[in-house]
Design a protein around this nucleic acid. Structure first.
Length: 348
DNA sequence: TCTGGGGTCCTAGGACCC
DNA sequence: TCTGGGGTCCTAGGACCC
């Protein structure tokens, strides 16, 4: 069985843990937008992505905690270590969540006994996270990733949901396709056009049929696997990161050269800094620009060879920025960023 | 109610090679 | 020099996730 373990309101929970006066009150983590809202704040209607200004105007009682990226990274590492203490088969999904394959510990069956045992393991893990890290971690237990994830979502806040085979079989056909992991607005629209609203509506469809409806082939296969109950239950162990980036919005959109160049330069240095101990040299550099109408462009910066030399990287980034011709564009630049592609490490 | 920042994966199309 | 067929690699862009 798989466990999907997911720390609740991660950033906010870390701040509430470290600052007792923030406990039990509606609070959010900044800076300009709500990066994370405590459950007390969510009860009011605050949600992630909301501009902080708007939230404070509407709910003046909101407390605001400073965003502490390094702290969250460190707590995340502790959380993952705790997961790997249960099983080495851990696939992180983000900073605060992961799939754990506990097949070797739960008897290995697909039956209710295995689900029950996996549930016991998950309950123990939740207690440990609460006791040792001071964090609420919700968990979902199921045969495969999709239902484990749906279960942990259902378990929130601070709960545990175990999905047995009978429940899975009953719920599966009734799942709205829009709720499936990996199905976003674009795919949802295409599926709805084909009158596919729930998983059951996929009956009779083939991969080719879905591809004709402009659904990506990999997505189509995935959807039919979900329909047939043979969807992904395999843990992919994390590899080294493939890219590292830094982006910053510019507050007020601008075409002013000095501002845009300065922001880009800062991003190059910040991304390099975040690369830290990783010895790899960026093989490619992309400059990201977003205009105030949300239109985004990416321009590649030319590198003669992989390098970590700040001067070379800044130079390549500025040259790429030049090629976007943002000054003549007419629109304002709202956000600028850079991303480095990293080579895969040599295989032994 | 479209607003931040950091990522991954998939696909189409072109370049290049045999 | 033209023509067929097949494979790999790279890049741009889209979609999605937390």
């Amino acid at each position: 069985m798989l466990i999907h373990a997911d720390a609740d309101a991660f950033f906010a929970s870390v701040e509430q843990r470290d600052h007792p006066h923030l406990r039990g009150v509606p609070m959010v983590v900044g800076p300009q937008v709500v990066a994370c809202a405590s459950y007390e704040a969510r009860a009011l209607g605050v949600h992630a992505g909301m501009p902080l200004r708007h939230a404070l105007r509407r709910w003046p009682e909101l407390r605001v905690a400073e965003f502490r990226g390094e702290v969250y990274e460190a707590v995340s590492a502790e959380l993952m270590t705790m997961f790997r203490d249960v099983t080495p088969l851990v696939e992180p999904g983000s900073m605060e969540e992961a799939f754990l394959d506990v097949t070797a510990l739960d008897g290995g069956g697909q039956d209710d006994a295995a689900a029950h045992e996996a549930g016991r393991i998950a309950a123990h893990l939740r207690e440990r996270a609460r006791r040792e890290l001071g964090l609420p971690v919700s968990a979902g237990v199921a045969r495969a990733k999709l239902f484990a994830k749906l279960a942990s979502r259902r378990a929130k806040p601070d709960g545990l949901v175990v999905v047995d085979a009978a429940t899975e079989a009953r719920v599966r056909p009734r799942l709205p396709v829009a709720d499936l992991w990996g199905v976003g607005p674009a795919t949802t629209a295409k599926l709805h056009e084909a009158a596919i609203v729930h998983v059951a509506d996929l009956a009779g469809w083939t991969v080719e049929g879905l591809v004709e409806r402009r659904v990506a082939k990999a997505m189509a296969k995935n959807l039919l696997a979900i329909r047939d109950g043979v969807d992904d239950a395999t843990i992919k162990l994390p590899g080294p990161r493939k890219s590292i980036s830094s982006t910053r919005s510019l507050g007020r959109a601008t075409r002013q050269r000095s501002m845009v160049e300065k922001a880009l330069q800062d991003n190059v240095l910040r991304a390099l800094d975040r690369l830290g101990e990783d010895p790899r040299e960026p093989t490619r550099l992309d400059v990201h620009l977003r205009f105030d109408d949300q239109y985004a462009v990416i321009q590649q910066g030319h590198l003669d060879e992989p390098t970590r030399d700040p001067t070379t990287l800044v130079g390549a980034a500025l040259a790429a920025l030049e090629r976007t011709a943002y000054e003549e564009d007419g629109r304002g630049v709202a956000m600028v960023g850079v991303s480095f592609a990293l080579p895969s490490p040599p295989q032994d």
